[in-house]
């Protein structure tokens, strides 16, 4: 917006976080505060607990099975193993996720994004000036944001993020495309279950079908459907909170430039990034286009 309006000629976007300066209990308290501090965290309902309750209800309602939810982590690690900049560069099996120690049932350690240190950066400028600086630029086609109630329990349905649905709808309109036009997407898998929800809320899959596709490895970079979290996602690339949103865009740029090496999605024209705050109380969606 700043460069499109002419207010600035060039903008450097940076994101950085060093989470390992704090112990894990303190970090979790910070994360808990991104939900409703009084009526959720103040009741002992942790951030992981809220996501676990979403997962429990999804399983109950037949939207996804425990295995399908766990498979999201397997997909992230599959791609993380192909990304030299990922925090965890090792593929894992479904069994590893299912047998990992419980954080908040039904979710285990391997359903949760890790504590990470990291940084990412981008350079933005007006599209017509980009050629002056580089031959391999991409176009920002849409950036949108939507919000919802802070507390999860105040929503009509906890198995969908209304803010993702709203931000995605606007983004597709801005870019003049539909969900079917996207070849590669980075979604906010703070927990495996939010990854599954994102695939449905962004319109890539119908409700009840995202989990099946993930379990069937259809989200891999070389399957031919929309490739999901080719960077390794929050789970395997890492989740240094302040850097995550920028890192998602960096991965899309690599893919759309054709410089994603071993995890390159063929003929990627449009990439989408979805970033979430709290339990979906704020969501941004960005769409980038190859030039």
């Amino acid at each position: 917006m700043a460069v499109a309006s002419g207010m600035h000629d060039i903008v450097l976007v940076g994101g950085a976080e060093k989470m390992t300066d704090m112990d894990d209990v303190s970090i979790n308290s910070v994360l808990d505060a991104t939900a409703d501090a009084e009526w959720e965290a103040g009741m002992g309902v942790t951030f992981a607990g809220l996501h676990a309750m979403i997962a429990q209800r999804m399983i109950h309602d037949g939207i996804a099975t425990r295995e399908e939810i766990a498979a999201f982590s397997v997909n992230s690690h599959f791609h993380g193993a192909l990304n030299p900049n990922a925090q965890f560069r090792k593929a894992i099996t479904l069994d590893t996720v299912l047998k990992s120690g419980p954080t908040a049932t039904p979710l285990g350690m391997f359903d949760c994004a890790p504590i990470s240190d990291g940084a990412a950066g981008l350079v933005l400028c007006p599209l017509e000036d980009a050629k002056k600086y580089t031959d391999s630029y991409v176009k920002v086609s849409a950036v949108t944001q939507a919000s919802d109630t802070l507390a999860l329990f105040q929503r009509p349905d906890i198995t969908t993020y209304g803010a993702t649905v709203a931000a995605a709808k606007q983004a597709y309109e801005q870019a003049g495309i539909t969900a079917q036009d996207i070849q590669v997407a980075e979604v906010h898998d703070t927990y495996t279950v939010t990854g599954i929800m994102a695939l449905q809320d962004l319109g890539f899959y119908k409700r009840g079908e995202a989990g099946k596709a993930v379990l069937n490895e259809e989200c891999h970079f070389d399957w031919g459907k929309v490739a999901i979290n080719t960077s390794g996602g929050l789970k395997a690339r890492g989740h240094p909170i302040g850097a995550t949103g920028v890192a998602q865009i960096v991965e899309l740029v690599e893919q759309l430039r054709g410089s994603a090496d071993k995890r390159q999605v063929q003929n990627a024209k449009y990439g989408l990034a979805q970033n979430t705050g709290g339990t979906g109380s704020a969501v941004t969606v960005s769409i980038l286009e190859a030039m």
Partner: peptide, 14 residues
């Protein structure tokens, strides 16, 4: 309506 058993607890519930 839904539930979870929390194992990884905040300080107040440790």
């Amino acid at each position: 309506y839904t539930f979870s058993i929390v194992h990884d607890a905040p300080a107040m519930c440790d």
